[in-house]
Design a protein around this nucleic acid. Sequence first.
DNA 1: ATGAATGATGAATCACCATTCATTATAGCA
DNA 2: TGCTATAATGAATGGTGATTCATCATTCAT
Lengths: 200, 200
Amino acid sequence: MRTLDENKRKAILKAGMDVIAEDGFHQAKIAKIAELAGVATGSIYRYYPNKEAIIVVILEQLWSQLAGELRLLVPRTDMSPVEKLDMTVDLVFDIFTGNTALALIFVNEHHQFLMKGVGTLKDHYNDFLDLAESVIREGVERRVFNANVDIKVFRHFIIGAFRHLLQQWTIEPEALPLNKVRQNLKFIIKNGILLHPVKK
Amino acid sequence: MRTLDENKRKAILKAGMDVIAEDGFHQAKIAKIAELAGVATGSIYRYYPNKEAIIVVILEQLWSQLAGELRLLVPRTDMSPVEKLDMTVDLVFDIFTGNTALALIFVNEHHQFLMKGVGTLKDHYNDFLDLAESVIREGVERRVFNANVDIKVFRHFIIGAFRHLLQQWTIEPEALPLNKVRQNLKFIIKNGILLHPVKK
DNA sequence: ATGAATGATGAATCACCATTCATTATAGCA
DNA sequence: TGCTATAATGAATGGTGATTCATCATTCAT
């Protein structure tokens, strides 16, 4: 008995990623994805029940990978909270560096599918967020991070800043080299903009 | 001779805002907008050439208003750069407070129409950004803000953080009261998360 | 080597919706 | 009180594109 070809499944996913990144989910055409993947339009439906399933799988993989990596980082006792925070930022930067398409999909499409609550996307994403939050919490408990900053707000703050910077990077990569962005992001979340901070 | 009714034009704009905020631009149906505005579907086209024009006008008005207000703030000599930065944040928060629909449109739709370069949207938006940047620049020149922070990155950083926080707020307003968000945002961009910063 | 069984194909289907336009209603003017 | 220009209407049009399915191709257990 013949079996579905996993390479083809991956080719469709990859093609879906590129087309959706370029055209946006609603404008992305199945015919174009099929052509890029080198299969017939109908074949797409042997591997994925519908168009939405393609992007959901892409996003699920993204967050389950990130959560997996962060899960290894969190319990380490040989690192300070500051180092862990920096490493978390690195983790996320690294996954998008060299994958503009994935970056674009995260930036532009992630939110709407998160809201729809399709598949296990939300679970993976929340896993990641909870782990990131525990890094901050450890820092506060160990009196390294400022307890006056609301953790929830801070968490969203970083994600948002990151997302937007990533978006700008996809528009003009030369003007906003990711290394510079990464370094500045790390600095600002730790120190803010003030030259002479007035902490109490 | 009969004239087009400016109240109707506004009603359509308002209805468009609500429907687009709720359903997203591509899912938003002209028929629904027309019904909400209390006009026939065909009448929409007497006031706006097409669906896209509706959202473009909404976004143009948003940024031209914000740029207008910021333009008054920038040259003031009775305020410090820190105060101006805080006021800029307030300006933006104020416009979205009490207008969840506008907030949602900014969060979810703004980017794609900015990219398309339709109408004068980009001009108004850039006006606003340039003015905001001049606030930062003044702070750096007057040795109040840290010159090591790249202004372009910082600018995108704040916008992104703000956008994402706003998005979260539209999802669960009770969990993230805008006052708390505003206060925390101001604090973090100035001071960062570190309890004992190590500025040189 | 054979023939189910299942994969692959892509033209045809079908639902959807922005936009149009023939027709009707109305405001403003003489 | 008509008259006319233009506003308003909403059913019909037309284009689009996701999904289906009848048909063909290929694999592999026998």
